[in-house]
Design a protein around this nucleic acid. Structure first.
Lengths: 182, 182
DNA sequence: TCAATAACGCTACCAGCAGTATCGAAACTA
DNA sequence: TAGTTTCGATACTGCTGGTAGCGTTATTGA
């Protein structure tokens, strides 16, 4: 093996985040990201099949493992919501997330990548940690992530803390067996 | 005045919905929409400033006035959620909505159009009918629309009825003055 | 030390799409 | 009939995602 696939990935991810933060997802062309990272565009396409896949990998790298800690189910969920809200509020992350999500709507291949690489790992861990069935966890993810992205997309700003707390209060009852409906 | 600006708008909207339904938002090019409507692309750009503006106008036309009827605040809200969920589930509507929303994330001008023409009218009516302050209504819209679009984008299918009911149960407490938080 | 090899940089290129410009034709008005 | 305004058709620009080909560099392994 020649030229070891030098661990440039972190630099590419950093360049992706910076470029998306400065220019937005649409104007963050692969050319610019490559230039920012100091590599050639072709190198990016040798490692990721598409722009969406690159940004998805960048998001996976940026999010890291979910901090599912707490004394109770409520605390664990609350911590997870605050964590994802903070992550989406980081420079470039929210715009990148909304961008790939947007692209994925009409790109089945990217949709699979997004579900598999980004959503599924967190879904599985949440099912195990919270002891909930898959449909409920999927519903919670829809509500939490959908709300955060909608706010981000409509206002351009991440959701304020008190609204995040309101969101936590909103989804907490879902974890309980009988959602107190008449 | 010559050639009366014949009311072709309905046909253009129908062509837009059909094309987006068949091809998705990204592949629904303005050329194709114009061809489907039997008019020239230039005519479209004489009436709407951008593709996003066209689709937004198409959505406004498709949604129409919100049916805010019911005996109580809860019933009004529940009816509104079922209505918007059904609309987003209609062929082409959900994809079009997700598409413009996506485009708007990195297009400030389109963002303004989307907020002004589509969201604001419903927000104002909801404030008046439900007797709620603007931040609360915005929060409800974020939760309801964000959740529906996230489900649509991730699965490609509209949200099932029982999940819509769960969503209604989720947001109903927000309308009450003291959200039952310790 | 010296090939062989694999990944890289560079340049050029293609295809598709949003949006613009131009001009002749049609249709309505007065 | 003359004037006005919109429409259709065509051609074009600019940008972007993605691909191809080729020379180059650095590492491996003998």
């Amino acid at each position: 093996m020649a030229r070891p696939r030098t661990g440039i990935d972190p630099e590419v991810f950093a360049a992706t985040r910076k470029t998306v933060h400065e220019l937005g997802y649409a104007r963050a062309t692969v050319d610019r990201i490559a230039a920012e990272a100091g590599i050639a565009k072709t190198t990016i396409y040798r490692r990721w099949p598409s722009k969406g896949a690159l940004v998805t990998a960048c998001l996976v790298d940026a999010f890291g493992p979910a901090p599912l800690t707490g004394a109770s189910t409520e605390e664990i969920l609350a911590g997870a919501v605050r964590w994802i809200a903070a992550k989406i509020g980081e420079p470039g992350i929210g715009a990148a997330f909304a961008g790939v999500f947007t692209d994925a709507v009409n790109d089945p291949e990217l949709c699979v990548i997004l579900s598999t690489r980004l959503q599924d790992p967190y879904r599985v861990v949440m099912q195990e940690t919270l002891g909930l069935a898959e449909p409920k966890v999927l519903f919670i993810i829809d509500v939490v992530v959908g709300t955060l992205l909608h706010r981000m997309g409509m206002t351009g700003e991440p959701m304020a803390d008190d609204d995040v707390e309101a969101l936590i209060a909103l989804v907490t009852p879902v974890t309980k067996p009988a959602p107190a409906r008449s």
